[in-house]
Amino acid sequence: MDVFDIVGPIMVGPSSSHTAGAARIGKFALTILGQPLQAAKIYFSGSFAKTYRGHGTDKAIIGGLLGMDTDDIRIRNSLKLAKEKGLQFQFFETEIDNAHPNTVQLELAGTEGKTVVVQGASVGGGNILITKIDDTEVSITGKATTLIVPHKDVPGMISDVTNILARRGVNIGRFELKRSQKGGTAVMIIEVDGTVDAEVNEMIAHFPNVIDSTVIAAIG
């Protein structure tokens, strides 16, 4: 906790959990998609489903999906802006089992054909927790620079990736490996201190058996 957690964040109102957190989840999901967004299906659950209109959660999510930060005043008009940009989006109210009350699931399709499903919760004070990426359950807060590396579940992958980070002087703060089944697809989630250059990310993405590599900047 520091002074700017108390006097701050600078944000578009009205609610740190229902607005600021929602925008962050949207932006996070957009970064994972890694290409311009073409269509989005937005499933609100729990308190989000009940009150999203009054809190502007819909505008905040769309703002985030357009790449806006929590203090971007354009969030107020994001629905209109999205329509002007030709983005297709639909909102649904649903109930996701065992989810935090402020949960949203985003089904995104990019202009270059990639699709991704991201589920996240706004857990208070603008803080978020990404709980699912496609079929993989994760727990990412976004407080540190995060590398997400889906790859084939074969021996040596972890050392390949962590070696290059070590050689570039990148210190790992948290490491998590998730896999759905033996020999299938696995995902490395690596939180690091400081930042990761685009070049390092490219190198990781081009390793054999790595499917993709995404760097998500730490939430300011």
Partner: peptide
């Protein structure tokens, strides 16, 4: 309340 920009101090 009207989705303008504010500084949470300590909350919105």
């Amino acid at each position: 309340a009207c989705m303008g920009k504010i500084v949470a101090a300590p909350t919105a």
